[in-house]
Nucleic acid binder design. Structure first.
Length: 425
RNA sequence: GGAGGAGUGGCAGAGCGGUUGAAUGCAUCGGUCUUGAAAACCGACGUACUCGAAAGGGUACCGGGGGUUCGAAUCCCUCCUCCUCCGCCA
């Protein structure tokens, strides 16, 4: 959620930011509604507090009167309190309603993009932050996409997954499974070397948790939900890991907080079908190593750059052709202020595959999380960031395709100690 | 799943209907003393909303929600969590 104080004190900045997300006049009206509603809320708050103060004062007097045996005067005061009580009940319910309405409106407002974020409606306006300077790997005529390679080498089986669960749940097997497991360990080790603490969080979360990082209410339809226990399967480790710090007040010396976690990720991907989703391009369950940071507001953009370098180093070490995009206002996630996407070139499919997304949420998540730190006498909201380092399925797809030779699929050198073999043949 | 017990400030732990945002101890921070430190002594020490230029007020919060009462941390209802015992179980 945006901070109310930002909306009140810096309305033009908020409006300008929302325009970058292609908000028109109709949608922007919500900002004035929020301010009006907040004015009402404040007025109700003041009225209510005054009444309660009066009631508290009278109650004290009644106690004193009883002590000295002045029953008659006490009962006069009692009647007075009874009147106040009615008023309190009325104003209380108005106040509660105003607060609820206000929260509901605030939940509809996405984060304000960083000044450097380009305007634009969709991915076509994303800025090429770092292009791939070299030629793409040259594959022979006989090069085939990863789902065919998987068939030939018995690496993963989507039809089997369909039998067991449903479409989009791959069954990895043999060297495919070992490649998957080895890569998870490789990514975790790199993160640990970079100073991240490893976390193994629950992969089902409750509604409060999903709300705090912004999955609810915005992305409710994207998450699997367990009916009986009202729990959600996580779409990313970001959710449970960031929520470690829900309702926490940090000391300034606690920064930076750097966490990493491997989890499977579950996404319903409702409504996406077609050629783009073949093989591992888009699945309902995939593995991902995530990095999460909690930062001092003045350091968060340095942290973001550091995370970008970390992801970049992973791709370099895997010898994959990649490019970095800076997302435009229209393509950026609801909660993000600035997002870099990493794409890897898949030579057999001749297309870019998104493999990582690194974002700074500034105070948008921490406002919902109530994640603050002590800044001298005051408490301030911290900044939260996260990024994939990396998402497995598509990386596997790219490695399989780009490294295919007549002798088999060559495993990148750095992975060999992790997977235990150097070629799939 | 069944039976019983418990949830109070960073921690420990009093309070069980009125002046208690909450005793006391520990921890933490500031000060006095000291060459320095320790000890001792003095002081400070929750969060949120709200009024105010500020100083400083007001209100709410003793697991969550609801109720009784002029007044609730204290009484009642309900939910949640934790502990102990039994059952089940990777």
């Amino acid at each position: 959620m945006l901070e109310l104080s930002l909306i009140r004190e810096n309305k033009s900045l908020v409006v300008e930011g929302l325009r970058k997300r292609n908000w028109g006049a109709e949608e922007l009206a919500i900002i004035d509604q929020i301010i009006t509603l907040d004015d009402q809320r404040k007025k109700l708050q003041t009225d209510l507090d005054a009444l309660l103060a009066e009631r508290n004062k009278l109650s004290k007097e009644i106690g004193d009167l009883f002590k000295v045996g002045k029953q008659a005067e006490a009962s006069v005061a009692k009647d007075k309190v009874a009147t106040i009580k009615d008023e309190v009940t009325a104003i209380e319910s108005l106040h509660k309603q105003a607060e609820e309405d206000l929260t509901n409106l605030l939940l509809k407002v996405p984060n304000i993009p960083h000044p450097s974020v380009p305007a634009g409606e969709d991915e076509k306006s994303n800025e090429l932050h770092k292009p791939w300077p070299n030629p793409f790997p040259k594959l022979g005529e006989e090069a085939i996409p990863h789902w065919e390679l998987a068939n030939n080498f018995n690496l993963f089986d989507l039809e089997l997954g369909t039998k067991i669960t449903g479409p989009g749940f791959p069954v990895f097997r043999g060297k495919g499974a070992r490649l998957e497991r080895g890569m998870i360990n490789f990514f975790l080790d790199r993160a640990i070397e970079a100073g991240y603490e490893e976390i193994m969080p629950p992969i089902l979360v409750n509604g409060d948790t999903a709300m705090a990082t912004g999955q609810l209410p915005d992305k409710e339809a994207q998450m699997y939900h367990t009916e009986k226990d009202q729990l959600y399967l996580i779409p990313t480790a970001e959710v449970p890991v960031t929520n470690i710090y829900r309702n926490v007040i940090l000391n300034e010396g606690d920064f930076p907080i750097k966490l990493t976690a491997y989890t499977p990720c579950f996404r319903r991907e409702a409504g996406s079908y077609g050629a783009d989703v073949r093989g591992l391009n888009r699945v309902h369950q995939f593995d991902k190593v995530e990095i999460v940071r909690i930062e001092h507001p003045e350091k968060s953009y340095d942290a973001l750059e550091e995370m970008v370098s970390h992801v970049e180093a992973l791709l370099v070490s895997l010898d994959l052709p990649y490019r970095i995009l800076k997302l435009c206002g229209g393509d950026m996630g609801f909660t993000s202020a600035l997002t870099y996407d990493f794409e890897v070139y898949s030579a057999a499919q001749k297309r870019w595959l998104e493999v990582s997304s690194v974002s700074n949420f500034e105070t948008y998540q921490s406002n919902r999380l109530k994640l603050r730190f002590k800044d001298g006498k005051h408490t301030r909201l911290a900044h939260t960031l996260n990024g994939s380092a990396l998402a497995l399925a598509r990386i596997v797809a790219a490695i399989l395709e780009n490294n295919q030779t007549v002798e088999g699929i060559i495993i990148p050198e750095i992975l060999r100690p992790y997977v235990g073999f150097s070629v799939i043949e």
